[in-house]
Deep mutational scan, measured.
Amino acid sequence: MDETGKELVLALYDYQEKSPREVTMKKGDILTLLNSTNKDWWKVEVKITVNGKTYERQGAVPAAYVKKL
């Protein structure tokens, strides 16, 4: 869990989004888990830093590609 009490997951593999509802992640990324009720796809929040600014993006990733921490 992070400092706000939200559950975290670890990306076990790289994943490139294939639709606007998904998010890209790299192996080793730590993501915030938002919903894991679907056994195949979990909704997560990814933090992306671009030019020193951090953005948050929500989307789905394959459940088999992440592990709860």
Rank of each mutant, 00 (worst) to 15 (best):
M1E: 12
M1Y: 13
M1G: 14
M1I: 12
M1R: 12
M1P: 13
M1L: 13
M1F: 13
D2H: 14
D2E: 13
E3L: 13
E3F: 14
T4Q: 13
T4V: 14
T4S: 11
T4F: 11
G5Y: 12
G5P: 14
G5Q: 13
G5D: 10
G5E: 13
K6S: 10
E7F: 10
E7G: 11
E7K: 09
E7L: 10
E7I: 14
L8K: 11
L8P: 02
V9D: 01
V9L: 09
V9R: 01
V9Q: 00
L10D: 02
L10G: 01
L10C: 12
A11V: 10
A11G: 03
A11E: 04
A11F: 03
A11Q: 00
A11P: 01
L12Y: 03
L12G: 00
Y13T: 07
Y13C: 15
Y13Q: 13
Y13K: 12
Y13G: 04
Y13F: 13
Y13H: 11
Y13E: 09
D14V: 05
D14I: 03
D14Q: 04
D14A: 06
D14E: 05
D14T: 05
Y15T: 00
Y15S: 01
Y15Q: 02
Y15D: 02
Q16L: 11
Q16K: 11
Q16F: 14
Q16T: 14
Q16C: 13
Q16D: 13
Q16S: 10
Q16P: 04
E17K: 13
E17A: 15
E17L: 07
E17R: 14
E17W: 06
K18Y: 03
K18A: 09
K18R: 13
K18D: 06
K18G: 06
K18S: 08
K18P: 02
K18L: 08
S19E: 06
S19T: 11
S19P: 04
S19C: 10
S19R: 06
P20N: 10
P20F: 09
P20G: 08
P20Q: 09
R21W: 15
R21A: 14
R21F: 15
R21D: 15
R21K: 13
R21L: 14
E22V: 04
E22K: 03
E22I: 02
E22D: 04
E22Y: 04
E22A: 04
E22M: 04
V23K: 01
V23N: 01
V23C: 08
V23A: 05
T24Y: 03
T24D: 02
T24W: 05
T24G: 08
M25W: 01
M25E: 02
M25V: 10
M25K: 00
M25Y: 02
K26L: 07
K26A: 09
K26N: 07
K26S: 08
K27T: 06
K27A: 12
K27M: 07
K27F: 04
K27R: 10
K27V: 06
G28R: 03
G28E: 01
G28V: 03
G28C: 08
G28W: 04
G28N: 05
D29C: 07
I30M: 05
I30T: 03
L31Q: 00
L31C: 06
L31W: 03
L31A: 06
L31E: 04
T32P: 13
T32Y: 09
T32R: 13
T32W: 10
L33T: 00
L33Y: 02
L33E: 00
L33W: 04
L33K: 00
L34A: 01
L34F: 02
L34N: 01
L34Y: 02
L34C: 07
N35A: 08
N35W: 05
N35I: 06
N35C: 14
N35D: 15
N35P: 01
S36H: 07
S36D: 15
S36Q: 10
S36V: 06
S36E: 15
S36F: 06
T37G: 10
T37K: 10
T37Y: 10
T37L: 09
T37C: 14
T37P: 04
N38I: 04
N38A: 08
K39V: 10
K39H: 09
K39N: 11
K39T: 10
K39W: 05
D40T: 12
D40W: 15
D40Q: 10
D40M: 11
D40F: 15
W41S: 00
W41V: 03
W41M: 06
W42V: 07
W42A: 03
W42T: 01
W42M: 01
W42Q: 00
K43D: 14
K43R: 13
K43A: 11
K43V: 15
K43M: 15
K43E: 15
V44F: 04
V44W: 01
V44D: 00
V44P: 00
V44H: 00
V44C: 03
E45K: 10
E45I: 13
E45G: 11
E45C: 14
E45Q: 12
V46F: 07
V46Y: 09
V46G: 04
K47T: 14
K47V: 12
K47I: 13
K47R: 12
K47Q: 11
K47N: 08
I48A: 06
I48M: 09
I48G: 05
T49C: 15
T49K: 11
T49E: 11
T49L: 10
T49Q: 10
V50M: 10
V50D: 08
V50T: 09
N51Y: 06
N51A: 10
G52S: 05
G52E: 07
G52H: 06
G52A: 05
G52F: 05
G52V: 03
G52R: 02
K53C: 14
K53V: 14
K53F: 11
T54K: 07
T54A: 07
T54N: 07
T54P: 07
T54E: 11
T54S: 11
T54D: 09
Y55R: 06
Y55S: 08
Y55P: 01
Y55I: 13
Y55F: 12
Y55D: 05
Y55G: 05
Y55E: 10
Y55N: 06
Y55Q: 08
E56Y: 15
E56R: 15
E56A: 15
E56C: 15
R57V: 08
R57T: 06
R57C: 09
R57G: 04
Q58W: 06
Q58G: 03
Q58P: 03
G59W: 06
G59M: 09
G59D: 00
A60G: 06
A60P: 02
A60Y: 15
A60K: 13
V61L: 01
V61K: 01
V61H: 01
V61M: 04
V61C: 07
V61N: 01
V61P: 00
V61Q: 00
P62W: 06
P62K: 04
P62I: 05
P62N: 03
P62Y: 05
P62V: 04
P62G: 03
P62R: 04
P62L: 05
A63C: 07
A63I: 04
A63D: 03
A64I: 10
A64E: 10
A64L: 09
A64D: 09
A64V: 08
Y65Q: 05
Y65W: 05
Y65N: 05
Y65T: 06
Y65M: 11
Y65K: 05
V66L: 15
V66E: 02
V66K: 00
V66M: 05
K67P: 03
K67I: 14
K67N: 04
K67E: 12
K67W: 09
K68T: 06
K68Y: 08
K68M: 09
K68H: 08
K68I: 12
L69F: 08
L69E: 02
L69R: 02
L69C: 14
